[in-house]
């Protein structure tokens, strides 16, 4: 679609809708910026002073929303938000396109979370300001990928030559879909895909991954234990109740995998265990004391990664 037909966009506007919208070089630029912010937070404390970020969350969120808001405030910017979309203009029947065009007139940057797949792609078409996808249905969650790659790089020191085990809901888990595509672009990555039959990685995602890197190793398994000894990274996910049409299916699959210290005995000593959070039952609280469990560090690194992204999109980096 001809972008110009839809209204004025800021010159050079760039969006972050899909984890592949940014090249590995773009990611590296953001990682370097995030590192420098972590080392000296004061340097960027007023970088976004006078800028306004709008957060539109049509699905529940605690971590992503707070992470974005904390990131913007730590850069000296302000945040406006919709308290409850159920009582907003959407309840009056306003289209997403109209909401985005309106909010884009108030703010310098929009973060959108929406239950429908591709919602952020549509919103980016209409937004006059940079738009960040904060999660669209089961499809994409690129800023979680930014967080995940930054965590792997920080903890492992590299983003190549890694065996990455992804475990749990690989069908509806948007963080998995985004991460696997982005990681495929780095050399010598091997994937171990651990899930129940019903929650396997969708063929469409496998196809995208194989198009990006023909012959990439995608090994599927239903047994977490048999994959643990090989893994450099274990990425656990929650079985998401909200993605099931049928409650019975959810209850049957909810406890398919539970990571415990006993299971981790067979893993490498320098493995890292990641999770996009929130966790429910899939990681035992007894795991938290294990130095290989980095999921809370991952959440904190995510805030710095989002600070870098916001500064970059607003052109103040």
């Amino acid at each position: 679609m001809d972008r110009e037909r839809l209204g004025p966009a800021r010159k050079g506007k760039r969006d972050f809708v899909d984890s592949l919208d940014f090249s590995p070089e773009d990611y590296q630029r953001l990682f370097s910026l995030a590192d420098s912010i972590r080392e000296n937070p004061a340097r960027m404390a007023k970088a976004c002073s006078g800028s306004l970020m709008a957060t539109l969350f049509y699905e529940p969120s605690t971590r992503t929303r707070l992470s974005f808001e904390a990131a913007m405030r730590r850069l000296g910017g302000e945040v406006i938000t919709v308290a409850d979309p159920a009582t907003s203009s959407v309840a009056k029947g306003e289209s997403l396109a109209d909401t985005i065009r309106t909010v884009g007139g108030y703010a310098d940057l929009i973060v959108l979370r929406h239950p429908k797949e591709g919602a952020a792609r549509l919103a980016a078409l209409y937004s006059p300001v940079p738009l960040i996808n904060g999660g669209d249905g089961a499809r994409e969650h690129p800023t979680q990928t930014l967080t995940d790659l930054y965590t792997i790089l920080t903890c492992k020191g590299r983003l190549e030559d890694l065996t990455v085990a992804l475990c749990g809901d690989l069908r509806y888990g948007r963080t998995v879909h985004s991460l696997i595509k982005a990681l495929t672009r780095y050399p010598d990555i091997r994937f171990l895909l651990v899930s129940p039959e019903e929650l396997r990685l969708p063929d469409s995602v496998k196809e995208e991954v194989l198009l990006l890197r023909p012959g990439v190793s995608l090994q599927e398994s239903e047994q977490l234990e048999e994959c643990l000894p090989e893994a450099d990274v274990l990425y656990m996910t929650r079985i998401q109740k909200e993605r099931f049409f049928n409650e019975e299916d959810y209850l049957r699959l909810r406890d398919a995998y539970v990571l415990t210290p006993e299971k981790l005995q067979a893993a490498k000593p320098d493995l890292i265990v990641m999770h996009p959070l929130p966790r429910v039952t899939e990681i035992s609280p007894a795991m938290d004391a294990d130095p290989r469990a980095v999921y809370f560090q991952q959440a904190r690194l995510g805030m710095y990664a989002r600070m870098a992204l916001i500064a970059d999109l607003l052109g103040v980096a």
Binding site: M1, A97, E117, G118, R121, L122
Partner: peptide
């Protein structure tokens, strides 16, 4: 999103000419 959003223009991109396969621009 095109299932609920009236303003969404349906856009498809060709991914495999031989098998005449297109992919939705929004949801893939």
């Amino acid at each position: 999103i095109t299932a609920v959003e009236p303003s969404a223009p349906a856009i498809f991109e060709l991914v495999e000419r031989g098998r005449k396969r297109y992919r939705c621009y929004y949801c893939g």
